[in-house]
Design a protein around this nucleic acid. Structure first.
Lengths: 341, 341
DNA sequence: TTGATCGGGACATTTTTTGTCCCTGTGTAT
DNA sequence: ATACACAGGGACAAAAAATGTCCCGATCAA
């Protein structure tokens, strides 16, 4: 199959390009439906007219239906999109990117989805979709799955579906309150995932920014103890990787604190830990939950992060070399590969 | 792979068509090189201008080189052409045609090449190329290969290459003089094939149109006896199939004789035998050589015939049901399948 | 040396693509 | 119930691309 695509690339380069574009179009529609011409044109940054021609063609082929509310993929369109999945890697050269990252970062499995989360919002959706698929594959009955917060993980939650694989699985938030928006907090996501899959969940009720004394008190609570003991048996960790400063700002760090972080050389964040370029911990959020040692002990650590802007952070966290699977996007992958170690 | 082509068909309907055209173009150049724009345009019946655009594109891709003498395939172009071989069947639906013929004619293996020998001269070259490939595959050390005359078999001879497989192989003309042009006679082709492959050959020196008495005398000749005994051990028969009247005319039959043939319902010719629609012998050339019974006894009978005009003849000869492999072209195949038995 | 054929340049003409604007209907939030 | 925003589709001029046609000097073969 790879051979066929290579041949086509040589013999009909322009049409192969068209194939790529049509795929992207189909996928955009899938993620944005129902969507109108103008909105879609903006999302894919082309002009309205040019998109219109494409849409008309796909409509004639029967891959999408057009209603007054906007465009939808038809059943067949959905089918085609699904069928294309195994092709996409080759078509966009993502297989090569994945292999490159695998070697460079020393991560056993790397999956690269097409696009750049910084540029197209629905790439995050793709990351989530793929993340959900992978999670479903690796999860086993009775597993404890620790999840962090963040938009990428939220996207995974969104795309999870009920499955027999999730029998007796418990979703547990990896860390207590980290000062994010509710819908992006680990607690909410653990709950959402459990709800989507038919599994159960536990919560870590820890207010943001506790004083050390208060933390100690809280630690003695049976509920908290309970969750912490579960976390020690975590088999799967599902986490996002953030850019250090972005995360700190989102968590309302003061200017002083930000300056300290910069001073310390923090570039990435995950589980409430901040890492420098070398992958060393330079700061940690004052909260309770999954410890980094426990992450290292987990059988499967699934990292999800995309967008060119995340490249440095991904590289930094990879130095921890605790990951089994990295799911990222083309933008981040290209940026990573063009950085020398 | 088939699935991939179907997918592409849905997403980029033009793609397969263009791919087909480019393939045909590449192949035409291969067979006609060096060839100029105008000549090529005529051969492929398109206009010069439209071909020019194609050529420029392929030139940029590096698949062909352009000299003052005309266009040539580059090494890469040659490579692409070779690599496409396994695709061609699916791309042109030839696999389906071949399967259809296999069922309809009851021949174990049918290979259909793209094109119509009646319309494009180089399709005959393709038949020859494929024929040569197949022969190389089936031939074994020490084999006796009986060959007939005709343009198709001449084309096979042209495309044969030296190979270890042809060790101790003897090429033997299937029948003595059949009144054709020298370069198409069985004798010449046997010699040519032997020369190309590094094998040996024998000749049947029998003048055209002998009187029965003379034939009897000739049969007693040791040389002739020798060859005839070899023919009885033939393991591989490589033969063309002709249209009865065309062959008769080529052999300078008189008007009366032609009328007789028509009367008898002759439609096909091979080995000097003329067959009617039902596959029954209605006439035989007065010469010596391979007998039909011996053809039936041979392990491998490789028939080669192409062009829509040959369809009836192929069907007629197939009634003999002595063939193992039929190599034909799209034109003949389509015509055959649209005829009911 | 001659004559046919080569690739490439040039250009008018046709066809296709693209940009732009407007219209009417429908879903949705107020 | 009523705006209002956004949906798709029609229309058409402008721009761009494809195509038909002719010519030219170079080059190869007879």
């Amino acid at each position: 199959m790879r051979r066929l695509l290579e041949l086509q690339q040589k013999l009909v380069p322009d049409l192969t390009q068209v194939l790529r574009e049509r795929y992207m179009l189909l996928r955009s529609i899938y993620h944005l439906q129902p969507i109108g011409r103008r909105g879609l044109a903006q999302a894919m940054n082309t002009t309205e007219r040019i998109l219109r021609a494409e849409v008309e063609l796909l409509k004639e082929t029967g891959l999408l239906t057009v209603t007054a509310a906007g465009m939808h993929l038809s059943g067949e369109g959905q089918q085609v999109l699904d069928d294309m999945e195994p092709l996409v890697g080759e078509l966009f050269g993502l297989t090569d990117l994945a292999e490159g990252l695998q070697k460079k970062l020393g991560i056993p499995e790397v999956i690269v989805v097409q696009g750049d989360a910084d540029q197209s919002p629905w790439v995050k959706e793709e990351l989530g979709r793929v993340g959900a698929r992978v999670l479903k594959q690796v999860v086993q009955e009775g597993d404890i799955v620790a999840v962090t917060g963040g938009t990428s993980i939220a996207s995974v939650a969104k795309h999870l579906t009920p499955s027999a694989s999730f029998k007796n699985v418990q979703f547990v938030p990896a860390r207590g309150g980290l000062g994010e928006r509710v819908e992006l907090q680990a607690n909410s996501l653990a709950a959402a995932m459990a709800e989507k899959t038919g599994a159960t969940y536990r919560l870590l009720h820890v207010p943001d920014r506790l004083h050390p004394e208060a933390l100690q008190t809280l630690l003695k609570e049976p509920q908290v103890q309970d969750v912490l003991s579960l976390l020690r048996d975590t088999r799967i960790v599902l986490h996002g990787i953030g850019d250090a400063l972005t995360m700190a700002r989102r968590r309302n760090y003061s200017e002083e604190e930000l300056a300290e972080l910069v001073e310390a050389g923090a570039v990435s964040e995950s589980f409430g830990y901040y890492f420098n370029e070398a992958g060393e911990i330079v700061h940690r959020m004052p909260t309770i939950g999954l410890q980094l040692e426990e992450v290292h002990k987990a059988e499967t650590v699934l990292s999800i992060a995309g967008g060119e802007s995340k490249a440095k952070a991904i590289l930094s966290f990879a130095k921890q070399s605790c990951q089994n699977v990295l799911i990222t996007d083309e933008g981040a992958a290209r940026a990573l590969l063009s950085t020398r170690l």
